[in-house]
Design a protein around this nucleic acid. Structure first.
Lengths: 161, 161
DNA sequence: AGCCACGACTTGAAGCGTCAAGTCATCCTG
DNA sequence: CAGGATGACTTGACGCTTCAAGTCGTGGCT
């Protein structure tokens, strides 16, 4: 791992890293702020509801949903408890296998997503997509895929379509 | 704001956005995990200590430090309280103007940074810098600068050196 | 059948961040 | 030179995430 002298970043690497690391902090905050403001949802909650809204039967297993929203099962369980109290979804034991739990979006939860989605999309556009050149969007996609693959080899390797 | 029909993302925009948004969640978690594991520090705490270690007198005003670490003054105040309890730094009222508070890194805190820095640097290399082509690092820097500028016009406009 | 291991979730406590008030030193205005 | 007004912090409460146990079906082994 830590073999001998550390290799410091050169000037251009450092500049890129500083900007990128600031982005890693501020972009999620900006996305969260809009959703919180306009819909009273966190990004995580939005991902959960939006994920369910596109699933068959508007139903998904907890663990699948957790992966989709990039969070732990424990975190999801707490969030589902909150969303259940608000009436956006409900839990159901999986009929086929009692070890699994399904989350099911309610009508109320579906309305919530439909209401929140355009504002969120708009925000993604104005903060990211519409800010960059088409070329840069492609670059960002490739860079992101590479970095994800470096963190988790299960992530599809970039460079193969 | 929400003028008429929302414009959905096309396929390549969507792909890029999905990868990027996953990255926004997982990269900070991966950076935090290493620091937490190896040094018992959060990224924010590390930025605070590292910032102080490079400042003249190893001293910095709270509000400057907060900006440097991309966080609110309130958050910094809580963190400084914790770090003060651990002996990594101490508070001092600014001698020139009693409204300001300075944070001063202790010897103990300095050792902490010196110990943590190589592992963190190594992690930044293995998760980001060494994963990308030099060309991509440059692209990532430019993209990040643009996105930061879109969120906060005070951030130096990209394209002018 | 009965026992056990496993994996999917759930739960409670502890830690961290945010938000809204509150404190306090200095400046500014009359 | 009083009496706000301003701006830099501080504090406490609350909400969310994590971490470590705990619960509970199933499927495999004997």
């Amino acid at each position: 791992m830590d073999n001998g002298e550390p290799r410091w970043l050169n000037a251009s690497e450092l500049e890129a890293w500083k900007a990128f690391s600031a982005l890693l902090i501020k972009m999620p905050a900006a996305l969260d702020a809009q959703l919180r403001q306009d819909s009273g949802l966190t990004t995580f909650e939005y991902l959960v509801l939006a994920g369910l809204s596109e699933a068959p039967e508007r139903t998904m297993r907890m663990s699948v949903l957790a992966a989709l929203a990039n969070g732990s099962l424990s975190r999801l369980s707490h969030v589902v408890t909150r969303l259940e109290k608000r009436g956006h979804l409900r839990r159901e034991p999986c009929p086929d296998d009692g070890r699994y739990t399904n989350a099911v979006l309610t009508e109320d939860g579906y309305r919530q997503v439909v209401e929140a989605a355009p504002g969120h999309l708009n925000n993604v556009r104005s903060l990211v997509v519409d800010v960059l050149e088409p070329e840069q969007i492609k670059q960002l996609g490739e860079i992101s895929a590479r970095l994800l693959h470096a963190m988790d080899p299960d992530f599809p390797c970039p460079g193969q379509h």
